[in-house]
Design a binder for these strands. Structure first.
Lengths: 410, 410
DNA sequence: GCTAAATGTTCTGACTCCGAACAAAAGTGA
DNA sequence: TCACTTTTGTTCGGAGTCAGAACATTTAGC
């Protein structure tokens, strides 16, 4: 029951049905490959004739390809269809505080090569270094196919429309254009996105397809990133909620206590001030989480969040107390999201997932305590470990998504 | 960039372009009436021939009608088109704690007749009373047109799909079917919805069209209802966010302080415990907001929220303190929504809007203090006074919306 | 009355889906 | 071996829709 915005709509042309059905076929092949034309016709409830025509078009464009025929109990053997991904390359870039990762993968999300280098904070130098590495990677592996584009994930706020980094405190950037310089330096289209949204896109487009529960809509979830900050990306009906000025998802500064510890944002008692890595670390050290503490910890003075996690896992009581309290507060934060948005599930990413077995019961209990309905209390909360490089997968999803997205209409 | 859900999609047929363009024309007429075919063709960037065909179909169906021709500086005078609303009746019902309102209106949202009676808490008796009143209203005013359906707004949680009231503490109902009994008793289609979502639908479909700022997307907002409880309805891209189990929008139990005053939900420090009418009233009385207080106040023992508002407006210091604190806390709650969802604007409904001139600066200041970006801090916060019967308008929108909504696709 | 300009209609063509008929391919069994 | 059944995949005419040009209609101005 969507209202049409009469100031910005897309009217239908005579090729609109084609565009819609084409994408449906492509997505069905993607989700169920290998799949035959006849099976596609059954799933779409159309005649096989139409499927032949649609598939023929996708074959001509190189979006899919025909594999070998499959066995069948009776009758003619079906020729199986696959999405062409292995020779369509994607460059994924993840710029983080200390290291920048550059990865070469294919449209299906498969990793081909991965490298990293210390992050350069000067924009122009970073872009030229990135361009050089992209060129070298494509020269080395270019025989595997053609590159479809670059997905760039930046730490901080990003305006995905004009390709600018609005604010990246970890790099000291404010309103810096990186997309266009990188695009001209490499000759490839570049898509840019913030880390939390990128992780959500990775789940949405490259997610663990098979594990979804029956009846659960795969396009309704929240992805919460617990790291230096606490951010969330909201996905409703298969689409990321961006907000009127593209800043939706800032759950990090929901107050848990109006007179709580001071947060780096200036307010008091923010969720982030209780659950960020800095907060956990400060709690472990018995210090106030201040900007000074933050800086000194970043410079490598003192233990890191990884150290705390390792110690907690090894039985260190102080570390366990610090982490448990983080888990309790995170649970309260997740309960807010569960009540406010009622997602089908919540993904949690960040270093803290390394201790999931320990913290999961605490988080669940806190969520269940504050959830308003039984269904909300039972919302699956799924950890995503950092060793799967969710941000890099998100960068790949940035390039892959436009190929498979539903056409915008009405 | 929406992902297609391959387990539940709508494929295009050869009449899909027609369905889309038909709705676009209908909505353009609705938003810009009186409007000519030629103007429609310009706005849609199509030839006038296609518009003639689409308009002809809408005329045949009775969705629109031709008015008189308009003056033109040169050339043939255009015949103006209008949405046919005046002879298509709608019954709107708003069941509240003390009174139930029944209104007869037309598809355009115009009020024809309004009556009320003391709410009956027995479901069957309520339904038969409602059916009798609906029949009488239609008999009296039936000459004005045919009735398109009934919109029913209930206080509490509603499953809009199967027409059941899941939980309405004000009526003492749990899992009660009212939609189907009322539909069979009246022979009319009935749509049911919760109060906060209904108010949002009223704004979305019958909202103050002209006053929207340039560039502001009309389909991205949050409607916050401050009443016995505090609820919110989230509208993204012209569509209400319902959530995986249809319980999205429960911002009332966002904690402002984990160890704050006890809330009726069982937790502590909920936004509702600070800003509901009961909370304001309890603050004025210097009491704890308990279930017992709630009951005694509902029974008419002691002052009502309206009394407190009148006193605050007249200069009573205690009442002003109570209301100002409510405003401050509400501002914090709105800041959470601004940061989390980044809506284009926020509507606030409820008795407290009667004091908007006094509380607006406090609310704005609290929002601005916690908003993370300048754009978010500037989010317009618009009061909707209760004398416009927003819930009844929402009930009308329930019936009107399906007529104008975009077709679901892909 | 003629012309220009604008609105509204009609008609042919192109693109699409739709459904039925047809061809192709594999197994079964007389 | 070969007709029969079953399933897959293709082809083709028909119907619905948009696209665009030609045409008819109406008004104002000269």
């Amino acid at each position: 029951m969507r209202k049409i915005d009469t100031r910005s709509f897309v009217r239908a042309t005579r090729s609109t049905p084609r565009a819609i059905n084409r994408q449906i076929v492509l997505n069905l092949v993607r989700d169920h490959q290998p799949i035959s034309r006849a099976e596609l016709a059954r799933r779409m409830k159309v005649g096989r004739g139409l499927v032949t025509s649609l598939v023929g078009e996708l074959l001509d464009e190189g979006a899919i390809y025909e594999g070998p025929t499959a066995d069948a109990p009776r009758g003619r053997r079906p020729t199986m269809l696959f999405v062409r991904t292995h020779d369509r390359l994607v460059v994924a870039i993840d710029v983080r505080f200390s290291l920048t990762y550059v990865m070469l993968g294919d449209l299906g999300g498969t990793r081909i090569a991965l490298e990293s280098f210390p992050t350069i904070t000067d924009p122009a130098t970073l872009v030229s270094e990135l361009a050089a590495r992209v060129r070298r990677l494509l020269a080395e592996h270019g025989a595997r196919g053609t590159c479809e584009g670059i997905g760039l994930v930046m730490p901080g706020m990003v305006d995905q429309r004009n390709g600018r980094v609005l604010n990246a405190p970890q790099l000291g950037w404010r309103d810096v254009d990186v997309r266009d310089p990188l695009a001209t330096a490499t000759g490839l289209p570049v898509s840019i996105e913030s880390a939390s949204i990128a992780c959500a896109l990775a789940q949405l487009w490259l997610g663990d397809g098979g594990s979804e529960r029956v009846g659960e809509r795969p396009g309704d979830f929240v992805y919460v990133t617990v790291s230096d900050g606490v951010g969330a990306a909201i996905v409703v009906d298969g689409e990321v909620v961006r907000g009127a000025s593209h800043t939706a998802g800032e759950f990090g500064h929901v107050p848990l206590a109006l007179d709580g510890p001071r947060c780096l944002c200036g307010a008091r008692g923010c969720l982030e001030a209780y659950t960020s890595n800095l907060a956990t670390l400060s709690r472990f050290l018995g210090r106030e989480p201040s900007a000074a503490t933050s800086r000194s910890l970043r410079r490598g003075a003192g233990p890191t969040i990884e150290d705390v996690i390792v110690r907690a896992g090894a039985g260190d009581a102080a570390a366990q107390r610090a982490v448990d309290e983080t888990a309790r507060c995170l649970g309260v934060g997740l309960a807010i999201m569960v009540n406010a948005l009622n997602p089908a599930r919540i993904y949690v990413g960040g270093e803290i997932t390394g201790l999931w077995d320990r913290i999961a019961p605490t988080i669940r209990a806190a969520v269940a305590e504050r959830a308003l309905t039984a269904a909300a209390a039972a919302t699956p909360i799924v950890p995503e470990p950092g060793d799967g490089h969710p941000r890099l997968r998100g960068a790949m999803a940035l390039v892959a998504a436009p190929q498979f997205a539903a056409p915008r209409l009405a």
